[in-house]
Amino acid sequence: MKRVFLNECKMNIRTFLIWSLVVGGLGFFCITLYESMQGDMENMADAFSKMGAFSDAFGMSTLSIATIEGFFATEVGTVHGLGSAMFAAILAIGILSKEEEGHSGEFLFSLPLSRKKVLAAKGLCVFAALLGFTLVCTALYIAGFAFLGEELPVKEFALFMSGQFLMNVEIAAVCFAISALSGKNRMGLGIGIALIFYLYDIIGRVVPDLKDYIFVGPFSYANASEIFSGAEIRTAAVVIGIAVALLAAVSAFVCYERRDLAA
């Protein structure tokens, strides 16, 4: 199992580096832009905060984008949220199905390993990649704050990055379960799932009648604007997130154990 895990990590290292450096680098770049845009932001912040549902959706009614916290939450929060969700989905949705699509499954599954062990090794690889992704981005965002000489709001920042990590794990678990069911790499579906979760959260924040239901989606407990404005994260949202991730992971094991593997 250890060898499969290491081999899987090795095969995914390029994807991991590209995504973590691109998303983290974009976040770093956004942070460093703050100083040069600060003057203009002060004029724009007031206007942005009075755009009704749009301001609510992107958190600009509660946070001023003229502050570094507000700027980080609205700009980097969106970039990191979308980027990390897509990385999690793309990585997880292909990790099992690629064996059947690429016909390497007959080689892998002829080795003395149970399907459970293969699944566990691949699941651990996804988890490790998401953890590594979060750590790389965290380091780059901290570097951005240090570059500007701004104080990092440690508590909110830690909550945001932890929430994002859990959100990534939840999305990855859902895609992992789909990968266990499908003999083909459904990358498009993975990206679609990440975007649907994101849109669900945005629509829920724009449409007043849906506001009470956004806690079901994974983006709800990792919303940067809410976290940086000090709003309390609903425990139910986190519990649902963990439950969905566990249920999806268990489903992946049960389905993969029972189904025929394509040649």
Binding site: N7, M11, G102, H103, S104, E106, F107, S110, A263
Partner: peptide, 12 residues
């Protein structure tokens, strides 16, 4: 075991 179509990981 030797399958009829021998496929492995392309990058290796």
């Amino acid at each position: 075991y030797m399958p009829s179509e021998a496929w492995f990981y392309n990058s290796m």
